[in-house]
Design a protein around this nucleic acid. Sequence first.
DNA 1: CCAAATAAGTACGATTCCGCACATACGTTT
DNA 2: AAACGTATGTGCGGAATCGTACTTATTTGG
Lengths: 254, 254
Amino acid sequence: MAKSRYRSFKAVPPAAKQDGDGKRISNLILLAIPQQEGKQLFPSLEFMRLRLHQVLHEAGETIKSVYFLNNGLGSVLTVMPDGKSVEVGLIGKEGFVGLPIVFGFKTSPLRVVIQCDATAYRVDVPTLRKILPECPQLEKQLQRFAMILGMQSTQLAACNRLHDVEERLARWLLMSHERIGGDTMPLTQEFLGQMLGTRRSSVSMAASILHKAGMITYTRGNVTIMDKAKLAEAACDCYQIIQEQKSNWQNETR
Amino acid sequence: MAKSRYRSFKAVPPAAKQDGDGKRISNLILLAIPQQEGKQLFPSLEFMRLRLHQVLHEAGETIKSVYFLNNGLGSVLTVMPDGKSVEVGLIGKEGFVGLPIVFGFKTSPLRVVIQCDATAYRVDVPTLRKILPECPQLEKQLQRFAMILGMQSTQLAACNRLHDVEERLARWLLMSHERIGGDTMPLTQEFLGQMLGTRRSSVSMAASILHKAGMITYTRGNVTIMDKAKLAEAACDCYQIIQEQKSNWQNETR
DNA sequence: CCAAATAAGTACGATTCCGCACATACGTTT
DNA sequence: AAACGTATGTGCGGAATCGTACTTATTTGG
């Protein structure tokens, strides 16, 4: 299972916004940069498939690569010495993995795990460092996303402190659902417990309540959202707040 | 009380690292930038005294000024619609207030309050925006601090989720103590409750325990640290972790 | 096809924290 | 000195969550 953690595929650098193998670029940052910067960056990108629960970056290690998620979803986790963890950020196709690199840092104290089978374009750090000075728009996009993710994490921080498991679970499911594009998500209660910073059995009870209310169904390792509107009511305000922040900030410039 | 919230003093722009009025610059960012960039920035800086519980920035409002804290301490808070709040970051003389500005954002969803009488150098946003393109070192410093604060907030997020009031209170006192330089801090239990995201009465009980153990004493509105080593034992690991992260990251560059 | 591994349901006492309320103590103002 | 506002101590029942453990169900692997 942990054998070929980085199962990379034929590296066919996309010449423009879409590469030759039909691996259409969906990552919003890659789509947003001007063509001339794309010419700098794209040849160095390697298309990859990322598997469920694959660890893109382990807390404390040196960051070797930066990943532009194309689809799928990554979770950013704070891991405590005793092994407990809490999710502090979600990264989808609107962002990238490897924030500290942009600011000249080499490591990160956070773990990033893939929540569902995903694809990404990878670039190794030295290459990116070489390219970055010549790509001001790219750099700006990366910085902006870092800031947005930071803001998101502050809201999650408050949420994790102030709201109970049921509300947080509902919020979490909604937030992930949005970035995956599919009502069924591969999730175990154990995994959700790590995200929410709580026991698996607490997740079990909360999920049971949401199920009985007709909002979700789930089988072994899979959760399906049945009634998104109802689920949104069960979630805490944080869901709405993060939504609004995201859209505000995406429009907001100097 | 809320009359002259911004009691600014004679603006004597420091010509170099120290201005003429003996208001020595302690802010690490201002100290770190090269002289030529200082020449750009310093004339626009306004020396200010900031008072206890003064709100430097209210959540959701447009950011009008950026503050380089010279001494004293600011807390960054996430505020919920129901008024509850949680601290998600601490800013001292190593940083500045107004992070989003650096990335071209105009607002912030976070409140920043002063924890004790402080001094700062203020610059208004349009001016800073004008100066910034010509001060790459300054910009880099600001960006780096934004990243460090973001990392700090992720650790606090996990801490607020996983650790109980007593541990968090001990951690909080230590973290503030370090950035203030004085064993006595002007703190009410109500205020601490807002920082820790808990009830005042929970703070009261936790403080009582720390007091009985000889770690702190406190009177109406003041807390004094008596035994820092003991207090560090009572605090959760997060105290050490944040300490280490800070020093690691301050040395770490590309 | 059976064994082993993994996922989920459930239970229980202990603990922490909540919301609220009231009493007391201190400090400032008049 | 008295009165007021503010800070703190304390108590109560109830809710949420914890730590742990055991059971059952499903999937995977030999």
